[in-house]
Structures are given as C-alpha cells and as structure tokens.
Design a binder for these strands. Structure first.
Length: 417
RNA sequence: GUGGGCGUAGCUCAGCCAGGUUAGAGCGCCAGGUUGUGGCCCUGGAGGCCGGGGGUUCAAGUCCCCUCGCUCACCCCA
C-alpha cells in the first residue's frame, strides 16, 4: 500500500477522464459566452465572512467549512461555493451592470464522501448582477437547459418554484413552523431536528413518515405578494415561449438561505433520488448588499460537474473524447532517430508519440498499436544506416513503404490526409 | 457525525463460512515462439509485509478485538 494517498473526499482525475472534465468546461464556456457572459476567476480562499451569509443555519456554513487562521491572523476559508465570491468581487470592483459572469472550478466542503459527493468538487455556473427582470430569470434558466442539451444528457428535469419576496418567505416560514410543530409527533426524529433549525427544509424530507405532514403543510403560493406572483408568472410564460419544459414544485426549497423569489433545480432521472440534483440556482437579491455593496438584484445557478458526469455515464451520454496520436515512431537502432523524427513531425503540427528504452520491435509495435496511431514510422538498423524510414499504416491493409528521411514528413502528411 | 458492505498481484477478483504443504485466476506488463513488424494464438517470466496492530491456536489470508482506508446509505447538498 502506498505511503501517501489522497485525503478523504479528494481524488486524482487521470486521463482520459481529465480530458472529459476539460471538455465539459469548454462546452459550458461556449454556451454562456455566446450569451454575453464573461469568465470570472475568483480565488479559492476568501475571508470566512464572505460565506457567512450563505446561512448559519445551513450545514455548509455551520459544519462543513474548511476554515483556518492564516499566518497573518486572518480567518479564511476555502470556498464552499462561488456565488458569494462572485458577489464579493462585484462589490470590490464594481463592474458596470448588468454584470454577466461565468465561472468554473473547485469548491470545498468537509462532508462524508459518497457517490457524487466529494470534499473537493467542481462546479460551473453563471451569475448576473444588477438586473431585476423576469426575462433574465428565464434567460439564466434557459441557458442551463441548453447546456445539458448540448452535452447530450437527455433525462434532465427542470423543477421550478418561487420562494416569494423576503417578507413572503418570512411569513411562510413562520406558518410552516406552526404547522409542523402542531404535527411534531408525526414527524421523523430527523425532521424534528430540522424543524428547529430551518422549517423550510422539512419540506425536503424524502422519508415516508414525513409525507402526510408535508402534504398537509401550507404552500408558498398562498403567501406570494402580488408582485412576486406576477414575476413568477412571467418567468413561466417566457420558458413556455422558449419551449423549455419544467415542472412546478411548491416543495422545492433550495438549501442556501440567500435564495428568494425564483428558484430552480435540474434533476437527473438516472441518479438516485437522494442526490439527483445536478444543478440548482435562483434569485439572491439581497446578497450583494449583505456583503457591503449597494442593493443589487442577482440571479444565477451552479452545476455540479462530477454529478453531471455520473449522470452522463449512466445514460451513456458524453463519452470521453478519444485521445490518439497521429503517428507512433518505432526505433530499434538506438533511439536517436526517433527523437529527431518525433521532433520534426511535431513541429509540423502532428500528434506523435514514440517508445523508449530500446525495447524489441514487437514490443514497440504493440505500443504503436495501443497508442491509437494511424501510422507507425519504423527505423531499424537498416533504415538508420540507409537514412530511410518505413511508414506503415496500422488501421488499414495498405502496404508499408520505405522513404528517404527527407521525404518522411510529406509522406506521413499525405498518408494521414 | 450515524449505520451497512468491503480491504488478497498494477487492475478486476477467487480463496475465508467448516484454520493445515511453496497464496491463485483473468486482464495488463516483460520476453520468446516469428534472430526486423502491432491486432489473433501458444509458452515462459517478473510482480504479494493477504490494509495496519494486537489476540486465540501447535499452526491465521482464513477466527476474535482495535485501528486506518475505500464504498454505499442517512444527514446535507451540486
């Protein structure tokens, strides 16, 4: 067993999965940059206070923060998400609004790892600050939907709800508290604990025992202000017009405290119910102000890269992009010619690999085959002496040819064209 | 943080229940068959503190305890 291995919840991503990971981000960037979003790269480390507004009743802040005091006596934390960082950046730099930003990168939460949940996990996302317009809500949601479509992930369900304005939400939480306390004896032990911290999240319980009390609970729609209801109705009409299908779910409560009004979640059908959310987001109009900025509306979403890729695996969608070189150089005459040839071909823009350590012809040819190369370029002792090389097709029955070294590049290029 | 399952070769695993010669298989790797040619086939080889520690026993990969790790679920969330 190795002396050192990855810390719990951390993992190495090796090829070819790493290429898929990178390609994921590329597709996302293509989709959102085409809609006017610019990349923002916030630091992994922030003052711990930046994240406090996520909600001190949430585990994310209360129990899962990777925080410590640095050598300058600053209390800092590895970011558990990036929305708060983006809002902090907005307050610090005050870019012109609307500020449309996208990001990708790792976040950190000290949780017990399991399938689709790591202590270091990647998200991609977008945020828009400075605009209060239901059509922006619809744009953001539509872009998320389009992204999954571009990836090829089919079994995605968009779930939609509105938490109302802050006052609506506050009255609703109080009503929920009264309702569940009246039915506390029907609730599971776990939900009774949740009730004490955050009545809203009791709605999120999937335990059968809680189902009757949840079914009888008041619904957020009864508490919407006229403005909040109108805003939400416009969002729905815009999605309808764009042909984006969604399901209304009055029980959808997002985990973080800053959400208000429009909230949504992307759920993958192939994932188990407990962790089927591959992405989520909503409005967080008060967050910038909480971080010391001016009152600024905001909306965005984050998508979990790891979980989305798991969903793709289960569906057979978005396979790892093939990584193959164009040519593989075999050299049984010492290796110097292989170095010269690989250098020449690579400088010409070709993808070229070779074998090392002077292994046997058979061994090097096996490596050539496994590399996926379409051509083998072979230099044995005869060719080395004569100043020639053999060009051998590996993916067809075409005959191999022997050419002078001066003609090697053009021969290879022609064979690959 | 709480439970269940699992740690044996680089990888996937058998062997454990009923302790007993030198711990196995497939794949992969290296070499040979073909003294200069991949895929298919055959032969050989390298590679294991059987996760770690303690205990029971004449004897432990196998039984017991502890511990670490992985994993699944709860919780929480992407």
């Amino acid at each position: 067993m190795p002396t050192f291995r990855t810390s719990p919840g951390m993992r190495d991503v090796l090829a070819p999965d790493s290429a898929r990971f990178r390609h994921f981000t590329t597709v996302f960037a293509d989709v959102v940059e085409a809609a006017g979003y610019g990349q923002v790269i916030p630091p992994l480390l922030e003052d711990v206070g930046v994240f406090a507004r996520i909600g001190d009743a949430t585990d994310v802040v209360a129990k899962e923060m990777y925080d410590f005091v640095d050598k300058g006596e600053r209390h800092v934390a590895l970011r558990p998400e990036q929305t708060a960082s983006v809002c902090r950046a907005f307050v610090q730099h005050r870019p012109a609004v609307p500020w449309k930003a996208w990001y990708s990168g790792p976040n950190f939460r000290y949780e017990k790892p399991q399938r689709g949940r790591y202590r270091q996990f990647d998200q991609v996302g977008i945020e828009v600050l400075g605009v209060d317009d239901p059509y922006l809500d619809a744009e953001v949601i539509t872009l998320g939907w389009e992204f999954f479509d571009r990836l090829g992930l089919r079994g995605v369900t968009l779930v939609l709800n509105s938490l109302g304005e802050p006052a609506d939400r506050g009255r609703y939480v109080e009503a929920l508290r009264q309702h569940f306390e009246a039915h506390a004896d029907e609730l599971s032990d776990v939900s009774r604990e949740t009730l004490a911290r955050n009545p809203l999240r009791v709605l999120d319980s999937k335990r059968a025992q809680d189902a009757p009390a949840i079914a009888a609970a008041p619904r957020i729609g009864e508490f919407w202000s006229v403005a909040a209801a109108a805003h939400f109705a416009t969002v729905q009409r815009a999605l309808d017009a764009a042909g984006v299908p969604y399901t209304l779910d009055p029980l959808l409560v997002r985990g973080l405290d800053y959400y208000r009004r429009t909230t949504f979640e992307f759920q993958a059908a192939s994932l188990e119910s407990a962790q089927n959310a591959v992405g989520g987001g909503g409005r967080y109009d008060g967050l910038v102000e909480d971080l010391g900025g001016p009152p600024t509306p905001g909306i965005g979403f984050a998508l979990g890269v790891d979980r989305t890729l798991i969903a793709c695996d289960d569906e057979g969608a978005f396979p790892p992009p093939p990584v193959a070189v164009d040519a593989f150089v075999v050299d049984t005459a010492g290796g110097a010619d292989a170095h010269a040839i690989t250098t020449e071909l690579r400088r010409a823009g070709l993808r070229v690999d070779r074998a090392f350590e002077g292994r046997s012809m058979k061994s090097q040819m096996k490596s050539a085959d496994r590399s996926g190369a379409r051509l083998a370029v072979i230099v044995g002792t005869d060719e080395a002496t004569a100043g020639t090389a053999v060009v051998r097709p590996l993916r067809s029955d075409a005959a191999q040819t022997t050419v002078a070294r001066a003609e090697l590049l053009s021969t290879v290029q022609e064979a690959l064209s």
